[in-house]
Amino acid sequence: MNTNDIISSGLLELHAAGLTSSTEASQVEQWLNEFPEVAAEYAAITAGLEAYAQSTGVQPSPSVKERIFQKINEDQIGRVVAMKESPVTIKTGGVPSFWRTAAAAAILLLLGSIALNIVNYNKYTQANKDLETSEQSLASLEEKNKLMEADMSVVQSKYSVPVALKGLEAAPDAAAKIFWMKNTGEVFIDPSNLPETPQGKQYQLWAIVDGKPVDAGMILTSKQGDKFRIQKMKSFGKAEAFAVTLETEKGNPTPEGPMFVMGKM
């Protein structure tokens, strides 16, 4: 048979499909080794088939790949253990019992060490997590502490003159405290006992100077987070009294809303 006859016989196509009998198959394999033209033709046939199979492929679900890799990894671990054990088991006759015991002990130690590593690693990650939470709560406590200290420095200052503002008709239970620094004229207010403001309204502090109310600033009363902290208002060299009214947001040049609390120096 010459190479042209082989190529045109259709046997190569059959072989690529795995449809040749074993005699035919070995014959084809021999030709493939012997004749480069036949091998090239066979390569072209199988390349065409591969492209055809690719074009009619059916995408499997992603879980198949995961399962396969899980399986080969399991098998690999099994194989490693088997390899480690084999010298011990196969040569039992020739190996002195001391070495057998030693090898067994070594394997046990290895397995033990692996287990210990896993346990330690888990402990380590847990400890890391715990540390992170602790650090976070520490930071928030420090923040709180700083604010408290700022409040305390106002209250404790030897120059601070406290003025109690008492609840009026609009809010008999309300109260507020003013701390007036007699050395600097700075005014601080502790508004923590004022009722929550309605939407769109804000408290405004007034200093009564020469019988007239003068704007002393808007009071921040956000209830979110650390609300109602002691806060710095406008400074006054002198004032007869302080009062708080409920005004529209951003405040008014003269008091328009109801007065909540008031106190004289």
Binding site: A53, Q54, T56, G57, P60, S61, V64, K65, I68, K71
Partner: peptide, 28 residues
Amino acid sequence: YAPALNGVIFRLVEDRSLSEDILQEAFL
């Protein structure tokens, strides 16, 4: 090659889940 081989199997078994079981076996 998984889609092409899965296509080959699917044409023989005409059942997607069986086809994927065999595909897994084939790759192993």
